[in-house]
Structure formats: C-alpha cells, structure tokens
Design a protein around this nucleic acid. Sequence first.
DNA 1: CAGTGGTCTAGACCACCTC
DNA 2: AGGTGGTCTAGACCACTGA
Lengths: 246, 246
Amino acid sequence: MNRPATTHSPTFSPLYQQIRALITRSLESGEWKPGDIIPSESDLAERFGVSQGTVRKAIDELAAENLLVRRQGKGTFVSTHDDPRSFFRFLRLASNEGELLRLQSIPLECWRAKAGPDVARTLALEPGAPINIVRRLMRFGDEPAVYDEIYLPGELFPDLSLDILNSVAVSMYSLFESRYSVRIIRAEERLRAVSADRVSAELLQVAEGSPLLLVERVTYTYDNKPVEWRRGFYATKNFYYHNELG
Amino acid sequence: MNRPATTHSPTFSPLYQQIRALITRSLESGEWKPGDIIPSESDLAERFGVSQGTVRKAIDELAAENLLVRRQGKGTFVSTHDDPRSFFRFLRLASNEGELLRLQSIPLECWRAKAGPDVARTLALEPGAPINIVRRLMRFGDEPAVYDEIYLPGELFPDLSLDILNSVAVSMYSLFESRYSVRIIRAEERLRAVSADRVSAELLQVAEGSPLLLVERVTYTYDNKPVEWRRGFYATKNFYYHNELG
DNA sequence: CAGTGGTCTAGACCACCTC
DNA sequence: AGGTGGTCTAGACCACTGA
C-alpha cells in the first residue's frame, strides 16, 4: 500500500480514502456482488497492509453511502435493492393516513427507440443511440398513485421487455442489479406541479387539468454515470411525497 | 464518567453516546451558543475523563447532524443559520437555468391568534394557546416564487412583529436563534400538487387554478420539539424543488 | 511557533451471532 | 468456542491555521 504523500503535497489523500477507493473498485468490478459478504475487517487490513482501524474508517464511509451494510456479529455485506428496507429510499411516497400500503407495479409498455436530444443529453449518450422506453403505473392499495415514463440506455439493458418487467416482484432496481449488473447508487430529483394531460389523467383516474406532482429523476451508478431518466406523475390527493431536511 | 454497563445489560449505551448526550446538553442549555467555538477535543476529553478518540467519535456524529462544524486548524464551532451555506439546507429551490439567484423575503403580515385544532396538534400545543401567524412572499430575482403561511407557538416568540421580521437580512431561522434562542435542527416536509386559490394566484402572479407545489413543513428543535408549521406554495414554472436520494 | 483538528497504529476488550 | 463488528485507549505524527 502506498503511503500518502506526506509533506506539503498538493495531492494529499489519506490512507483510508485510498482503501475506500480500492474497496469501491472491487464492488464495481463485481468481485463482491450485491448480497455477498465481504472479507472481514482484519482480512482486508492484512490484504491492504494497513491497520484494522484504517479499513474500518473506509468501510464507515461506504456504509454511510449505503454501498455496504454492517451487521454486528455477522459481517459486512454489499447492499442490495432486494432488501425491502432499501426500497423506500427511492420512493418517498406515503399515504395521508400513514397506513401500511400494499404496493403494486404495473408495466404498461416497453419499446425500443432512438435517443432524442433531451434524452441523449440527460443520459450522456450520442443522439440517436438506442434506448428503452417504459411506461408504468403504480398502485397503492388498489388506488392509482404514480404514472412513470422511464428512459434507459439500450446498451445497458439489451433485452428489456414487458415480460421481463412483469416477472419482477420487487423494484425495478433489483432487476437492474440482478439481470443487468447495473447498480443504482443515487439519484437527483426535480419536483414541479403540473396539470394532468389526457393520458396521465386517464391512467391516474383524475380530471384532465387537475394538479399533479411531476418528479423528474436522473439515476446514477458508479462514477456518476447516469443510467436512468424518469418522469413520474404523482396523484397527491391521498398520498404525499415525504422528505426530511437535516 | 460512568462506564457503560458491561455485561448483558439491556440498557447498554457506548461511552461516546453518553459524551454526545453531554455535549448536546451543553448546546441546549446555551453554554455554547451558535457561532461559538467549543473546547478542543483534548480539553473535552480531560473534562469528561475519557480519551480524545472517544470525544472525537461523539463530535463526529454531531457534525454529521450539522449541530457542530469542524474546521481543521481552528477548532469546532456551533453551527448557525447565519451561515449562508446552511441556508439552502432548508430551501431546496433552484432555478431552471441553474443561475445564482438573488433572494428576497417579503413579510406581508404578522398577527397573534389562538391555535385551532390542526395547529395545536401539529405544534403539540393546547387548543386555544397563543400562536403567531406570518404571511410572507419570497422572490427570486424579481420573480415571485414562494408564498408562505407560517404558524409559530406564541410562547416561544412573544414579541414577533412585522417590523422585527423586516429587520432580518438573512433567513427567519437565524432570527429565531439570535433573538429567541430557538435553534432549528431538522424538518419534515410533505409535498403535494394543488390548484392555486385566489390569494396565492394573485401573490405569485399566476392564473387562478394553475398548479402549485404545496410544501407542508414541520420544523423541530432539540428533543424533537415542534416549533414551526409552514405551508409553502411554490410557483414551479421557472423553479423546481431539488432533492437528492442516496 | 503553538494549538487545533485529522490520520494511523497496536492492542485490549466487549457485544453479537453462529456453530 | 470462535469469528464478526463495535468500543476504547494511548501515543505518534501530519495538515492546517493564525499569531
């Protein structure tokens, strides 16, 4: 292990950050897959030639970013979107009464297209590159709640189809990670209020022109690479978008 | 310093959590005020009779929650809402073009009232308890962006008035902390899309009935005590509400 | 220069889990 | 009993700041 440059170096980076980068690389390369246990802290310390405390600090940061999950007495695991706990991290929807909600994803359409200028820019693709477009409805306890239009790079999801989407019990992101080895890390959202057009009004069973919450999301994998652009129309009569400010 | 109960104790709490609680108490009691520097890690270690590393871990957590701010070479400081960096933590608004925005808060009205059932429940007050109601407009670069209706416990803000609100250069929360010793720690928001009523339409210069983003916020101080209920109507034609999912 | 936070180590011990 | 993460310590040294 290279020691950090030690005196007046303009590129000083602490040891634990270097370890952190090495662990991230192993995650990225698939050496450890979602759900897997990774080597113990002392094993990693030996492997990298540093003390256990230094490895610990690197893992601390990766756990804070939800890339890893620690479980005392058991070990440290690569986090996965199969875990229902990690599911509501990316769906900040709750019902007015705070009830537990039975959630249902209903894929409507899935087809192949070429990236227009907007999609190309957002997903960092060449204009005209192949993309997948998915239309989907989400119901919460038999009530339509969200209508999504989803744009995905064709290269990353070569054989995506309605059948495959229908086979998914849990979230789309767990499909991405298990079938396509695309690990969703983080997302940025832009929220606006808009008027329902004819299509979304019909799907969400509201009057045309009634207010909808538009959630535009860009989702990223490692290295801040965008892998999804999503426009979600939320019917917020009986639901709301929940956020915490700290 | 009491050592943590050590064997099979159901109430086990690590030392650094106890230290953290002690530091929090000193913040709460006003021993160290917003903007103040707190004693150095080694001073605190001596004062509490623990090692410097244990104090460090306690401060780590408080810094992660934005209660404290570390500055290498200088010391550790109590965070304050005067700091413009901490300002956009509680205003997740950005413009479509991503420009820097000149921001202006225009208080419209401020009066004293009695808590109705909704306000009383939200702010954990007795129904009929005195409250302050504030109406306010926010402009971003000469364009109206947000109309706020704000409900505050009368007991905490006894002499709040339009004059006092107008004297504030920065955020209301820095007024709360400097004049009323009420420190805003965190907030929960519920977002919905609604139709503009006559009042908000006029203030925000949009057509009556056009979609607005309604942001309902409950703000908390220490011990999860609610101190503010706010309904913000956001005109999202040229702005959006920004959120990061991690 | 002295003082602060930041990094790194080595070692001891504890809490939790599984076998 | 043995392995894992979690806590705590004591000490050394580094990076950054301001006088």
